[in-house]
Write a protein that binds this DNA or RNA. Structure first.
Lengths: 204, 204
DNA sequence: TGTACATCAGTGAACGCGCGTTCACTGATGTAC
DNA sequence: TGTACATCAGTGAACGCGCGTTCACTGATGTAC
C-alpha cells in the first residue's frame, strides 16, 4: 500500500478535529465539506472515502466535540475536593474565555438552538451528549452532599449554557462580563457553593 | 390603482408575520423567501417589491417576533402586583407550551446560537431585542423591592431562555418537564418569589 | 528476480439541486386631455 | 364622455452561485507467480 496502515485513521481523526471546530464556529448548515477537507490539507473529492455523507460527518464531529469537553472537564477538576471541583467547573464553563472561543467550547452552548432543526440522528447524538454532561454534573452535585443532584443537574446545565450563549450576543464587554459573573454567582449560590462552604471543605 | 391604498402595507405585514413564524421554526438559514411568499398566497417574484433582500426580511421578522413577545408579556402580567407579575411571567416563559411552540415563542430561545453567525445588522437587531427584554425584566425585579434588578435581569433571562432551549432537546417528556419545573423553581427562589412572599404580597 | 496485476487514498472535473435574485411582462385602475 | 397613457403589485421564467455528491482517473506500493 501507498500509505501506512494507520494513515487512513489518522486522516479521519484530522478531519474529525477540523469538523468539530468548524461545527461550533459556523454551525451545522454553514460548515462546508470542502472546507473541512482543505483544513486537513486534502481536496474535497476524497471526502466520501471517510464519511458516508455530510450528516455522517456532523454527527461524528459532534461526538468528538462532546468528548473533548468531557476530557477537558476531567482535567479541570482533577484532584479537587467535591465542592471545589464543582465550583471550579462552573467558573471554567461560565467564563470569558469560553464565551470568546465557541470553536473549542461546549456544543450545547454553541449549537443549542440549531439542534431541533437537524436530522434525527444528529439530534439523538446531541441529546446523548447533553445527558452525559448532565449525568456527570449530577454525580458531582451529589458528591457535595446535595441529594438533589439528579433533579438539579439539567437545570444547572441549562443556566450555564444559557449564560454563555447569551453573553455571546452582548457586544458591550463590561455588560457581557457582568452577565457571566452574575450567572456564576447565582448558580454557585443555588448549589450551596458559597465562599464559606468552600473554606469549610478545605478544612475538613 | 388596482389595489387599495393600504393593500401593500397589509401584504408586507402578512409577509412579516409569516416570516416571524418561519424564522423561529426553521432558523434564519433554512427560511426560504419563496416559502414566505407562498405562505402569504403570493409567488416568489414579487418579494423584492417589499424587501430589499432576504437579510432585510430576516431583520424585520426578528423585530416583529420580539415585538410579539413584548405585547404578549404585557398581556400576561396585566393587572398583577409586582411579585405576582414577575412570578407569572417566569411561569409563562419557562413553560411546556413555550417549549412546544418555538414558532410563536421568544426569539432568544429559538435563535440564540444562530445569532453569532448572522449578519452584523441581524446581530444588532437581536442584541436590541435582548436588551429590551432584559430592561423590562430589570424594571419588574426592581418593582418587587429588589435593588439589583439591573444586574440580575440578564442572567435571569439567560437562565430562562437556556432552560426552554435545552428542554427542546430532551425527548423524554417527563425529564423535559422536570427540567422546566426545576428551572422555574430555581429562578423564582433566586428572586425571592417563594410562595410565602407571594402570599404576603396579596395581603398588602 | 522480475513482471503483471490488484489495491486504495487521494485528485479534480462534472453533475444536480436549492435558492436568492433579476427581469420582461401582465392587467386592473387612475389620470390627462 | 371617451381615448391614450402612466402606474404598480404581482407573475413566472430564467440566471447564477454555492455546495453536496459522483466518478473516472492517478500513482505508489503490495502480492501472485
Amino acid at each position: 500500500m501507498r500509505y501506512s496502515d494507520t494513515h487512513k485513521d489518522e486522516t479521519r481523526k484530522k478531519l474529525l478535529r477540523a469538523a468539530a471546530v468548524a461545527l461550533r464556529e459556523k454551525g451545522p448548515d454553514k460548515l462546508g465539506v470542502a472546507d473541512v477537507m482543505s483544513a486537513a490539507g486534502l481536496t474535497h473529492g476524497g471526502f466520501y472515502a471517510h464519511f458516508k455523507s455530510k450528516d455522517d460527518l456532523l454527527i461524528a464531529a459532534l461526538g468528538e466535540a462532546f468528548a473533548q469537553g468531557g476530557r477537558r472537564a476531567m482535567r479541570v477538576v482533577d484532584g479537587l475536593p467535591p465542592k471545589h471541583a464543582l465550583a471550579h467547573y462552573i467558573d471554567f464553563y461560565v467564563s470569558v474565555s469560553h464565551r470568546d472561543h465557541p470553536e473549542n467550547g461546549c456544543p450545547i452552548t454553541a449549537l443549542n438552538s440549531d439542534n431541533p432543526r437537524q436530522s434525527k440522528k444528529f439530534r439523538a447524538a446531541f441529546e446523548a451528549g447533553v445527558k452525559s454532561l448532565a449525568g456527570g454534573l449530577a454525580n458531582w452535585i451529589k458528591a457535595t452532599g446535595n441529594p438533589d443532584g439528579e433533579k438539579l443537574a439539567p437545570s444547572i446545565l441549562a443556566a450555564m449554557a444559557g449564560a454563555v450563549a447569551l453573553s455571546r450576543t452582548i457586544t458591550d464587554g463590561d455588560l457581557s462580563n457582568d452577565l457571566l459573573a452574575t450567572a456564576r454567582d447565582g448558580i454557585k449560590t443555588r448549589l450551596g457553593l458559597t465562599e464559606l462552604a468552600l473554606a469549610n471543605e478545605m478544612v475538613q
